[in-house]
Amino acid sequence: MFAMLFAGQGSQHKGMGAEVLERYPGLVGFASDLLGYDLATLCTKDPDGLLGRTEYTQPAIFVVNALHGFERTHREDRPADVYLGHSLGEYNALLAAGVFDFETGLRLVAKRGELMAAASDGGMAAVLDTPEERLLELLADHGIDGVDIAGLNTPSQLVIAATPPVLAAAVECLEENGIRVARLRVSAPFHSRYMEPARVRFAEFLTGFAFAAPRTPVVSNVTARPHRPEETARLLAEQLVAPVRWTDCVRSLLDRDDDVEFTEIGGTSLTRMVDKITSGA
């Protein structure tokens, strides 16, 4: 089985996509007109320091991933058997599978980024070498309520999300108990209950779009199962408040074929996660 992976937010960096952006001036110009700013300049030079802001990050990554995906499709003979994307990357997976076109995908991620950026009261942290049950038990024992599991990236890495005071208390508690924690440079508690207002507004926005059946299976971050056409809109809205079940997504493929070949578009972070999942680390 050949699985193609698309990276999400966090893979952005100044200079991203420089070569591929030059090769697709028509699509880049179209995207810039739709977004209202010079996308190529944002990605390659980031003169105003906006690339790290969610409302700019998400469209930029989507376009660069899409162009790399188009290039690979044109260059390679071997099609993917399944697509996976991490959080935002799931939109590139759905694009590659023909669920929507480039313009629709760009409109969706632009609105998604706008709504997620507006939910700025909170943060996230990566927790290492601590099973989910142990983590929640420890926080409960110390009277810390309001922490959500926002991501299950590998067997040894979870991501938590909460409001600023709750997250600070959780980080302090975990560190005092010898658990390694790293705060993430994000502006809000993504993939948690605190994104519910954004989920409601995004669900309303999604009613204006039609989604085709995937030509190739796309594994959902929410369910770790392939998308079904009748569920696409609901799952894309639900993704804002649900944890990214990356470990389960990868294992769902390994359960079907223990010799899956993974190729990542947009970085190497997902490949490293896959290596840890396959090794049980």
Rank of each mutant, 00 (worst) to 15 (best):
M1A: 13
M1E: 06
F6S: 02
H13M: 07
K14H: 01
K14T: 15
R23G: 01
G26H: 12
V28F: 09
G29I: 04
G29E: 13
G29V: 05
Y37V: 06
T41Y: 02
G49V: 12
G52Q: 12
R53M: 13
E55Y: 04
V63Y: 02
N65V: 02
N65P: 00
G69C: 13
D77K: 14
R78Q: 15
P79T: 10
V82P: 05
V82Q: 05
Y83Q: 01
E90V: 05
L94H: 00
D101H: 03
F102D: 01
F102G: 00
K111M: 15
E114G: 03
D121V: 05
A126M: 08
E133R: 14
I160P: 02
A161E: 09
P164V: 07
A168M: 04
A170C: 11
A170T: 12
G178Q: 12
R180H: 05
L184I: 14
A188H: 14
E204A: 15
L206P: 13
L206A: 12
G208Y: 12
F211H: 05
F211I: 13
V222S: 09
H227Q: 00
A233H: 07
E238P: 04
E238V: 04
L240V: 04
V244W: 09
W246E: 11
R251V: 07
D255W: 05
T263Q: 10
M273D: 08
D275G: 13
A281K: 14
A281D: 11
